[in-house]
Amino acid sequence: MKFRGRHVVLSLVLLVFGFLISFSYQYTQTETRVVQISDQEWEKDYYYRQQLLDLEAKNIELRQQLNKNRRQVQELEEELGQQQTNIGEFVEDKKELQMLVGELPIQGEGVKLTLSDASYIPTEENANQYMVHDRHIQLVINELYSAGAKAISINGQRIFHDSYISCVGPVISVDGVQHPAPFTIAAIGDSDTLNVSLNLTNGVIDILVNDQIDVEMEKKDTIEMKARIS
């Protein structure tokens, strides 16, 4: 019985011992295998990690560059917008100037003067004294311009900066186009100012009246003038 008990104890211990030994062996083997694999792949892992880091750094750099470029683009766009508004303003200015110069039709408030030869001519000899001459027209036009008229026309023909007015017998030639009396001078501008400036004492109208010329003047809300036909 004692012998048997000893055997049982021995076998039990050996069972546990064997189990432990083999299990440990197996475990260590698997562990070392894992370690070996990681050892083998360590260099690769490091390499890839380094690559990743490099890529990330590059990424950041590129991102910064992208941001910079975006900012530049935005600045350029703003500049472009500014330029566009400038161009718009310039276009407006140009239009206005073209209107003033006569390359575009113009319309606005103003005054209309009608100069006509004196209706009563006492003697035929002095008929010349009772007629409207180019100087009268020039006087009126100069006065209107100095009063701030934007555009002037005679009998619907616009006066430009290079226009000339001359007397051709009983008619007046404006840029070579002859106009008989009466002469209607229209001026676009501030009608009150023009009115006052024409009606000054010893002003244009007084002179004209002294020269026996019938002068009619009226304010107009809208006067239209055509553009120069070139």
């Binding site: 055997h7 076998s11 069972l15 064997g18 189990f19 030994i21 299990f23 440990s24 062996y25």
Partner: peptide, 26 residues
């Protein structure tokens, strides 16, 4: 033969078990 058998059984049992022990218990 009983202890020897038990040793063999224990060894094979240990080899066959698929229990993985966490690292901190090694």
């Amino acid at each position: 033969w009983l202890p020897a058998l038990c040793l063999i059984v224990g060894l094979s049992l240990g080899l066959m078990t698929d229990i993985t022990v966490p690292d901190q218990y090694s």
